[in-house]
């Protein structure tokens, strides 16, 4: 069980939106985390420095917050299953041109038909996967 946290989630979502808007207003970039990450992997994109700085900031946030408060964290998936899970996420976001941030927030806010189609697709397969894992195969 995890507690339903509408206020924290809404506030956190608004912060995510603020970062997404600032990256567009100041740098003219879509805040798609899979795309930003792919651009720092060798052979890196020519504009890799801003990408690396953004990723460093994202990693630093919980470290700095940790001085006052540590968010709940628990990963029910057995560690060995995180490997195929991660590989599928990497392959999927590459061919699908985005993830929850790039399509789910940036693209949907622009009413992009590709992002709406992508979001409906990955939400559906994620929901189906969790249903199969938990209620059909009795897994994690």
């Amino acid at each position: 069980m995890t507690e339903f946290t509408p206020l924290e989630s809404l506030a956190g979502g608004a912060l995510i939106g603020l970062a997404v808007v600032l990256l567009m207003a100041l740098h003219g970039r879509i805040a798609g985390l899979s795309g930003i990450l792919a651009g720092v992997l060798p052979p890196a994109a020519s504009d890799w420095p801003w990408r690396a700085a953004f990723l460093a900031g994202a990693v630093a946030a919980p470290v700095l917050l940790g001085l006052f408060w540590t968010p709940d964290f628990s990963s029910p998936t057995p560690r060995a299953w995180l490997i195929p899970g991660g590989v599928l996420v990497g392959i999927g976001v590459f061919f699908g041109s985005g993830c929850t941030s790039g399509h789910g927030i940036c693209g949907n806010a622009r009413l992009s038909v590709r992002s709406i189609a992508a979001t409906l697709t990955f939400m559906a397969t994620a929901g189906l996967t969790v249903y199969l894992v938990r209620h059909v195969f009795g897994g994690f």
Partner: peptide, 28 residues
């Protein structure tokens, strides 16, 4: 777009991490 997104969703459903959540989680 559709096949890639479907594969991403399967991985997300297995792991519970998406790219944008996993990077900050490194800081934990």
């Amino acid at each position: 777009l559709v096949i890639g997104s479907a594969i991403f969703g399967i991985g997300w459903g297995v792991a519970g991490f998406c790219p944008g959540a996993s990077i900050p989680a490194l800081g934990l």
